[in-house]
Design a protein around this nucleic acid. Sequence first.
DNA 1: GCGTTAGGTTAACGGTGTTAGGCTAAGCGC
DNA 2: GCGCTTAGCCTAACACCGTTAACCTAACGC
Lengths: 220, 220
Amino acid sequence: MASNVRPQPAGSVARRVRQKEETRARILDAARELFVRNGIEATTMRAIASRIEYTPTAIYHHFRDKDALIEELCYLDFQALAAALIQIGEIADPLERIKRMGVAYSDFGLENTSQYRFMFMTQTAHSLVNVERIEKNNPEQDAYGFLVMTVEEGLRKGLFRPEFQDEHQLAQLFWSGLHGMVSLFIAKADDPWIEWRDPRATIRLLIDVMIRGTRRHGAL
Amino acid sequence: MASNVRPQPAGSVARRVRQKEETRARILDAARELFVRNGIEATTMRAIASRIEYTPTAIYHHFRDKDALIEELCYLDFQALAAALIQIGEIADPLERIKRMGVAYSDFGLENTSQYRFMFMTQTAHSLVNVERIEKNNPEQDAYGFLVMTVEEGLRKGLFRPEFQDEHQLAQLFWSGLHGMVSLFIAKADDPWIEWRDPRATIRLLIDVMIRGTRRHGAL
DNA sequence: GCGTTAGGTTAACGGTGTTAGGCTAAGCGC
DNA sequence: GCGCTTAGCCTAACACCGTTAACCTAACGC
């Protein structure tokens, strides 16, 4: 069948590379879907493999182990989060930018609960990701750095109350508030003990509260 | 040896009950220590058993399964947290009380990271605990109910800005902020990506920010 | 004394992540 | 065109996990 086509060696090797990347991508897709649907712990290598009609061993030719597979997905997620945040980079007022970032961040978390859980609710995630792969302070890749830079700009412009001097501390304060709402909701949404209010509405209130509580008197 | 003492049947059965509770307590102690040291997932029933020189099967005579063992520890932790919060119940000003509760809550979380992780950073914890065991709105057992009641008192006294009407929403807002800082620090303290500031200091700032951002103008 | 039971054991089951070793088809050097 | 090497995958197995069936034994109630 291939005898009448005679692909060039170069074309042939290219096809093999392409096929390898295709299987790799299929593994990632299957893993992502199962992780989201059943959680990471409950998803077995065997289940991922059988979903794409491979044996479990095949996965180990593309990823060192289960953690490496998770790490790759996690890396892509950090990129996606940063991409979601970068879109609001052009807004001039730092405070307004922080607000928008907060909304984008929490929307991302509430819509991608499985990813969010792994990115920010476990110890392993970030330390698993090979740090060199992410360019620090490049807002396209480093969401935290982007927040710190925005806070720093606000500090330079004197928008915050005098007790706030440290851009890291202030950034961590904002981030904590957002993360608290998102992660608490993810972990406890089904808990009958708590009469949950709409998290998106509460988040918006919280963002306003944090801005109001940190900014200097005068000028909205 | 026991022939000259001849314990009464009643005393003998009491001893057996006591011994059973002792082993049960030893299991709980061993499990707690290993959970704290190595994490819950990484702690095996076999490890718990061998630590107190029993076979794994013995544990199953005291607890239905691993989840039941975890649940028992978790129940005790919720009691401990509520106990830590109840101590500041006598303070008159609701806002000051919320502040103190926030400090106590975050101290508890930062000092008992393993427990906190399980209580509030997983889905399972609370839903595992048999709900009937905790008395709702009894501040000695229900920390969330205690917070809601305090917020409600603040609302009645008109201490909050007019856009806050719902005691649950406002309680969830405060709780989220605290939880965010505690859980983010627990999950990411070792992450070299973030230049962490002292979480206790940042938490205190955050509490002030949230109070300032929610309370009505005037007074204090 | 004698059956029953409580608290423990040994051995095993099914399922997990992972790996050693083999098989096959395709590429490369001659 | 023919052997060698390698990539990609499979079979079979390992060690370990939570859990359970079956048994054993000492102490209890009658």
